[in-house]
Computed example of a mutant assay.
Amino acid sequence: MTVGKRARRSARGNRWGLALVGLLLVLAGAAALATGWGLFGVGPARSALVGAPIVDGLRRPWVPYVVAAVAIVVALLALRWLVVQGRTDTVGRLRMDPGDEGGTTEMPAGVARSVFEEEIGDYAGVRRARAHITESGVDPQLRVDLTLNDDADASAVWRRIRAEALDDLRTSLELERLPAVIRMSMTAPPRNPRRELV
């Protein structure tokens, strides 16, 4: 399973988990509200929230240990959830096509990404380029975030990326296809161009 699929599965699990916890809290709140309003009869509405048998049960010597064990389990589950949130679908290493010679050739994805960003960064009108190689090291995909000057020709930048930079990257990685998503945003020119050049 690729990292991207794991990230999507984690997001789906997050939605289901949050929906179930929210549903349980809504049901508990509705039940407490209905009891307080006397919808289940006058007796439950006027009775104490915690009865004497429950108080006596909580005074048993083993109760604090059970509470501590449950708290540890909940903390470990919460820690695992936080670790899962930190995962990204960015690929660390790219696996090159071994061809007829066999063996495995790998390269850091950061090297290919840096060369690609530098090439696009030199295009006219491009202020900043950030690229992310995602999905898998064997069949990668590319996400590009561009910040353009407000007077840049966005369509010309896009055509040049497609004709030059993407083709160069695909060729250097020995890939037949390299799916890419390019997001462009515009920014105003700097207030003090001289300071920007320093």
Rank of each mutant, 00 (worst) to 15 (best):
V73N: 05
V70F: 09
T105D: 11
E119W: 03
T90W: 08
T88C: 10
G103M: 01
L77S: 04
D122A: 11
D150R: 07
R130W: 00
T104N: 11
L82S: 13
A69T: 07
V115A: 15
V144D: 09
R162A: 12
R128C: 01
R128W: 11
V157T: 11
P140Q: 00
R93S: 12
R95V: 15
H132D: 15
P140S: 01
R128S: 12
I161K: 09
V115C: 06
P108W: 01
V111G: 01
R127A: 06
A75I: 08
P98G: 02
A163G: 04
R127Y: 10
E106A: 04
L76T: 03
G137W: 09
A154Q: 15
E106S: 00
E117Q: 07
T134I: 14
D153T: 04
V144I: 12
Q85M: 06
W158F: 14
R127I: 11
V73E: 11
L79G: 13
D89E: 11
I72K: 03
V138C: 00
A156N: 03
P98V: 01
W81T: 09
R160P: 06
G110P: 06
V74F: 10
G103S: 07
L142G: 02
R162D: 15
L94K: 07
Q85S: 05
V70S: 06
A75H: 10
P108S: 02
D122R: 13
R128F: 06
E135I: 00
G102K: 05
T134W: 09
A68S: 09
N149T: 13
D89F: 02
T147A: 07
L79T: 14
S114A: 14
V144H: 09
S114V: 10
V74K: 01
R113I: 01
A124Q: 13
V83I: 14
G125M: 08
R130G: 08
V74C: 07
M107R: 15
L77E: 02
A68N: 09
V83Y: 00
A112D: 03
H132A: 15
L148H: 01
A112R: 05
R80I: 12
I133C: 03
A131L: 07
A156W: 01
R159A: 15
R159P: 00
E118H: 11
L146K: 02
